[in-house]
Design a binder for these strands. Structure first.
Lengths: 196, 196
DNA sequence: TGTTATCAATCAAACGTTTGAATGACAATG
DNA sequence: CATTGTCATTCAAACGTTTGATTGATAACA
């Protein structure tokens, strides 16, 4: 097996397994078999099962950093929010496992939560709050709206849509071809909701 | 030990443990010790660990049925949505474990998902969609809004606020005394977002 | 030849479940 | 009224299996 194939195969195979069943729902043997490598390679490359899990999580959440750039862009405040929503949708479409790790850690946190997930989420929420506060101070948005409640509402609209898919797939069309309509629907509500 | 104390103790002790660590994150010994009962009582009363988990889940989701009554009430359509939001908030406040089971099953579904969680969620979403469609046909709401996208947006605004608490507690005040402001903030955005 | 990578085999520990005995309440029997 | 039998409940102990991790040998390569 070529250099580092073993390590890469483990991460690739572990990602969907951990996403579907969680850290304690998969055994090391299951991970090794799925990757087509020897069982002991998990300890050899990652120091153990939790190390592999942390490696998967780190890879998954590396993408999230790009969201912070939105705040510095020289575009309209409302456009920044739309950019956030669009980036979120395309991120979940490109990586169908990200949301699983995201919410799995929120509900059943492992040791990785404080180190990887929590800081990543805080940065995004902070960025959104800063953006909203800027819009407020420049008299674009209505007075009286609470910054944190408002940005969490926006984040909730888009994230919850994807989170609920396993339960509502038979009730609602969640296919990517409806994404554009979904984004417009959300931005439509949000824009009218916060503008003067 | 009095009649059925053993069974009740197991459910009471298992609820916070399963909520915090998930089905596979807790051992039967841990559950029995926390309940102060013998290890074999789990199998005796519930047929095994998964049986106890299912019993906990059933008890937790029994409350969710009340939401359906909202649709039949003789009140304004918008008031029905506000009632849904208020009921959701008070439900999470009264039972801090419900959301954990809710989202844990959505991300890492066990055998109980199809039987207990999925039907419960579908009923609520269907009720909300019916309510919105009624409002649409009676010309209260703007044309062009997609029913499913819109009600999932409302549900997301309130549910995501609670889901994100472990990550944003240091950034945002999630205390119950802010609930009224939170509800008004959400309904404010939603109302302006969907009204003509 | 020393280093890195991989393997099958093995380990102790923990897992969920089952067992057979002991307990106490209660009704039936004499 | 005392005795017997039945029943659900609880217990400590053990069950076989699976767990995550480690070992020492072996191969590939520098």
């Amino acid at each position: 097996m070529a250099d580092n194939d073993c390590r890469n195969n483990l991460i690739s195979a572990a990602t969907p397994l951990f996403a579907a069943k969680g850290l304690y729902g998969v055994s090391v043997r299951e991970l090794a078999t799925a990757a087509g490598v020897n069982l002991s390679m998990v300890s050899y490359y990652f120091g153990g099962k939790e190390g592999l899990y942390a490696a998967v999580l780190t890879e998954q959440f590396a993408i999230l950093g790009k969201l912070e750039d939105i705040a510095q862009m020289e575009i309209d405040t409302l456009q920044k929010f739309e950019l956030y929503v669009r980036a979120t949708v395309s991120r979940y479409r490109k990586n169908p496992y990200l949301l699983k790790f995201y919410t799995s850690e929120l509900t059943n946190p492992t040791a990785s939560f404080e180190i990887i997930i929590k800081p990543a989420i805080k940065k995004v929420v902070q960025m959104l709050m800063d953006t909203f506060t800027y819009g407020l101070s420049h008299e674009k948005f209505r007075e009286g709206l609470n910054p944190s409640d408002t940005v969490l509402a926006l984040a909730g609209m888009i994230n919850f849509y994807f989170l609920l898919e396993p339960a509502t797939a038979e009730l609602v069309d969640h296919s990517p071809k409806r994404d554009e309509q979904l984004i417009r629907n959300i931005m439509d509500i949000f824009t009218r909701g916060i503008l003067r």
